[in-house]
Nucleic acid binder design. Structure first.
Lengths: 334, 334
DNA sequence: GCTTGACATGCAACCGGTTGCATTAAATAG
DNA sequence: CTATTTAATGCAACCGGTTGCATGTCAAGC
């Protein structure tokens, strides 16, 4: 019934160094309490035995595990990996370990993961959470929670405001002479989708442009291809898509149809997940997901250290990244 | 100095149910040892108090934490996310939690992460590890390790054999009349790169084709663009790229140069991470990363349960996915 | 009716650390 | 030279479970 490996314990180090385990413990946690000489002896003994403090035992008595959990709807969605990496990097700098959870866009799954992680993390970062406000608030009473792209009052949150970028996009298209445009939507429940659609409508109204909306529940390359025909059917000369993948699908379909971009039709994506990697390279709205991941972690770690939960609402503005899928409207009135 | 939240402990449940903590413990771990009546009482009390066994305490006494760590070189490389998701899914089915580590392609970082995770995981999955064989073997003596895309004798490993797909690709190009081709390489230390380059050379020799190799340490869209001119300069009529991103960059550059694909030049990618999302859609070698992630976890969990470390070497073959970037050679000899 | 098990539960040690308080020795003060 | 701090270390309880062994109960066996 020997559990882990036969790693040396604090007692063995204590014996080897001729002190008690209290001193060994202190040598590793608050060496300034001990005489330099004792610390040296203990480290020497520890070194020689290859001693490493047992993380679990430490967590049990201190209540601090040095872990946090990051839960995303879908790891494979290109929007998340850079965010995950940034969060990891930031956690790493403070010696925290990161549990990653994939909710698969399902609230039950997300809830289950939070429960499973709950016992061994100090806090959570929920990205684009699919839970209800009530559930989020509930979980936040147990452990610190920081949200990304979800706006729940009282819970610290980082919001990527694509509205600013989308508004710029509309202005950009207007300036190029476009008078009629289409917004190609995304998932129904998505906070971002609502935000973007709203921004397009508002900006278009402001500038006197005509807007139609085409919904497209399942945002992806293939669905982008599929809705292209109906987009053209509206008679618009430009489209703003919910995300880059949709835009990329439209790009491919238009190429197949022989419609030149941006010559005959202009396209703007959203989230800049593809960088310049489309052809022509896509004009899109920047994402800031890296900053969001970093900020969420900084915030969470800060909360963990200061034990003060502040009601933070941190908004990251986006902007338009002009590349090569937008140009003067075909029949620009001049 | 109260650590976590004031969650109820096993003692409180015991008191409420009028038994000792041993019985409560057993009710949750081996209920068949107790009378049905007692179990009922205990569950009722636990339910009422909202008791959940403390994961950390349990881990301390049993040595089982129910965690595993997954370390990848770069979360944001599109090859990994599907693998990560698959691994997670599989871990989840067995109630395991997954720590994700990002080595940033750096051996030191990978080593550091393994150390940090070491205390609280039962095993590791190292994907495309950048560590030396010796280091891997060393770590494997402490905890079970399963490798993906790294071939170290004695360590259970899942290998995605892109050689089969690459060989098919060469044959495909040969059948289309190409006589001279280029292999555009990838990271120097990469096992996959070596494997692919070798396969191209072997297959080409077999079929009497001429091959030149262009190295391109930093595989990515931009570098793909950059090396395109030198690729054309070789006089080849087709290229096989280390990965899809490189191929995609070449595609963009060729379009800019006015070289039509596949009319004037043929391109084959590797890893199929872009699906059909390029234009023209990319002919590439399938990846199997999802199966690899799943298999690695199944294998690791199996090892953890049976305490038997077997020397498994599980090879997943790949195949060519023909799409639209390959066609007859420009001056096919007929 | 007494022995023998089988079954259910309790007791107490243990997992490997941390930490408040007590103790001791050395340093400073008076 | 004794009284008082101060610094270094030890003692033992605690974190919240798990588990080998002892104990007690009740029913079947002879």
């Amino acid at each position: 019934m020997k559990p882990g490996r036969n790693r040396p314990t604090i007692n063995q180090v204590a014996a080897a160094a001729g002190v008690t385990k209290s001193s060994v413990s202190r040598a590793f946690t608050r060496p300034e309490m001990l005489s330099a000489e004792t610390v040296r002896k203990i480290f020497a003994a520890a070194e020689q035995l290859g001693y490493v403090p047992n993380h679990t035992a430490r967590a049990l008595s201190t209540g601090r595990h040095g872990n946090i959990a990051l839960i995303v709807p879908d790891v494979a969605n290109p929007f998340f990996p850079p965010l995950i990496r940034a969060a990891q990097w930031e956690a790493d700098r403070s010696d925290y370990c990161v549990f990653l959870g994939n909710s698969d866009e399902k609230p039950e799954q997300e809830d289950k993961l939070i429960g499973r992680f709950g016992g061994q993390v100090e806090g959570f970062v929920l990205v684009s959470s699919r839970l209800s406000d009530a559930q989020i608030v509930e979980h936040a009473t147990r452990r610190p929670v920081v949200l990304i792209n979800r706006d729940v009052e009282g819970i610290p949150r980082i919001l990527i405001d694509s509205a600013t970028g989308v508004t710029e996009a509309v202005a950009h298209l207007a300036a190029l002479g476009h008078r009629k445009l289409v917004y190609v939507g995304g998932p129904h429940g998505s906070w971002s989708n609502k935000q973007r659609r709203g921004a397009v409508r508002r900006a278009a109204k402001e500038l006197g442009l005509e807007v139609s909306v085409i919904s497209n529940e399942f945002a992806a390359f293939e669905s982008g291809r599929r809705i292209t025909a109906s987009v053209l059917a509206t008679g618009a000369t430009a489209a703003i898509a919910f995300d880059d993948l949709t835009a990329q699908g439209m790009l491919a379909e238009l190429a197949d149809m022989g419609v030149s971009v941006p010559g005959e039709f202009a396209i703007v994506g959203c989230d800049d997940v593809l960088g310049a990697a489309t052809y022509p390279s896509l004009t899109t709205v920047s994402n800031r997901s890296v900053e969001a991941g970093k900020a969420a972690l900084t915030l969470l770690l800060d909360i963990l250290q200061n034990h003060a939960i502040r009601d933070v609402r941190y908004v990251l503005n986006t902007n338009l990244v002009i590349r090569k899928t937008t140009g003067p409207a075909k029949h620009a009135p001049r």
